[in-house]
Nucleic acid binder design. Structure first.
Lengths: 241, 241
DNA sequence: CGCGGCTTTGATGTTCATCAAGTAAAGTGG
DNA sequence: CCACTTTACTTGATGAACATCAAAGCCGCG
């Protein structure tokens, strides 16, 4: 509980040859570092693999590394006072989700859990901090990323909060379809309970509304397999619901 | 509408002698600048005064200046899709609220309105940006501030959202009493309508619950004058309500 | 086979928004 | 300063949205 999950899961670490050009160099953040620093980073980094459901970091874990999501999908959540989880957002590669907690606290404010098989790249925290002092443009681009992530998170929160339950379910289905899977048919990557945590409602009502949508021929659904049949209607519900 | 309020209100600008030692030097942010840069900033800055209710910046205004709140109290809000305002947070001096929008967008994400007589200090944006490149520690301290503000905002949002209406009213009354005025008796700095926007409920219910608290001898209230009589009970409601 | 966790549906009750209507307060123009 | 208008505040009645409770089916696992 008071150690990072990184250490718990060291068996997952893969030390690979430095083949991250495709990742790092495409990345606007690292564009602000000279070639040699980028290569050094690439050499230093460790890749850690997580299976679906594995905890990457826990709320209140000490921050000991800097990391970012190379590929996969994770959920970022926070415990509420009533002992319920609330999922703040889903994060994909290049969302720089780790940034939200860094640099002003010693401990993570949020829990991050892989909801699909994911790979994160881990760097020594002090190395990144030194780079930030040496290359101010690098730091500024961090700042931009943090602001963008925070804005997105607040926007999402406000949007979900101003919708009724049907609207919320519609929103999350569209998010999965458009932002994550880019497809009308996909497998919902979480349980009904997780889905309820993602949008702040009860599990029963998630199920009820999914059934409604099914009966209204807006979706086809069986277990976690879902197909969006009437996309326009779903969009209408998401906006006006 | 497409100009910043700063320009609309130029009559408010006061060019004063540089007497901001008490403000800037006490400030951890500016500790990362050399003396001469801090003095230059102090000389460049313009102070702008706002009366209660005046708009400082509007959502979607272009960001043309860097500013921070020297003294006073402001509310930061955002328009929801249903055309209702939601107040994200109250900000006091040194909250660096302006930071939330900077550096990744050309326009403000939020509206900021003075709810008490307030003074902001305004700097040319490019000057600050140049300082950020020249003094990385300064930039890092910005990053810390932004993260802290974002964390606080999210925390507040989640807390309010997991309470029933009585709990929300109790929370905001305690926030005013403990964080803003440091007193059991104070004048509520906003209307019942604004209060409802601050905690996401209807005006009618704000009034209803204030009346309930009055009848239960938890508070004395008359117009905007309020006195917290039973602080423990209010705290209980805020935590368990 | 039996147990626990996840899912589903139905019945019930609470919480809260909405509507309506009236009072108080505050600004406006003559 | 007073009549007038507008805005803020207050209370009650009603209904809708949603949580909670209860019960049963399903499925994987030991």
């Amino acid at each position: 509980m008071n150690k990072t999950s990184f250490e718990i899961h060291t068996s997952h670490i893969h030390n690979e040859s430095c083949n991250c050009e495709a990742c790092i160099l495409k990345n606007m953040l690292f564009n602000h570092l000279p070639q040699e620093e980028a290569e050094k980073l690439c050499f230093i980094k460790k890749e850690i693999h997580f299976q679906k459901g594995e905890v990457i970091v826990k709320e209140n874990d000490p921050i000991e590394y800097f990391f970012y999501l190379k590929n996969g999908l994770i959920k970022i959540s926070k415990m509420l006072d009533n002992n319920k989880q609330f999922i703040l957002m889903l994060a994909r590669p290049h969302d720089y989700i780790s940034l939200l907690s860094y640099f002003h606290k010693q401990h993570y404010s949020y829990t991050m859990i892989a909801i699909e098989e994911s790979v994160i790249c881990v760097f020594p925290l002090d190395h990144i901090q030194n780079l930030m002092i040496s290359y101010p443009e690098f730091t500024v681009s961090f700042l931009q990323k943090v602001n963008k992530t925070a804005d997105h998170l607040i926007e999402r929160f406000l949007t979900i909060n101003s919708r009724n339950l049907r609207g919320r379910i519609a929103l999350i289905l569209l998010e999965l379809s458009e932002k994550i899977y880019h497809a009308k048919s996909f497998e919902i990557p979480f349980s009904r309970k997780e889905m309820s945590e993602l949008i702040g409602m009860t599990t029963e009502n998630v199920i009820r509304i999914l059934s409604e949508f099914k009966n209204e021929n807006i979706i086809k659904i069986s277990g976690k397999e879902i197909e969006i049949v009437n996309n326009d209607k779903l969009k209408f519900i998401a906006e006006h619901g």
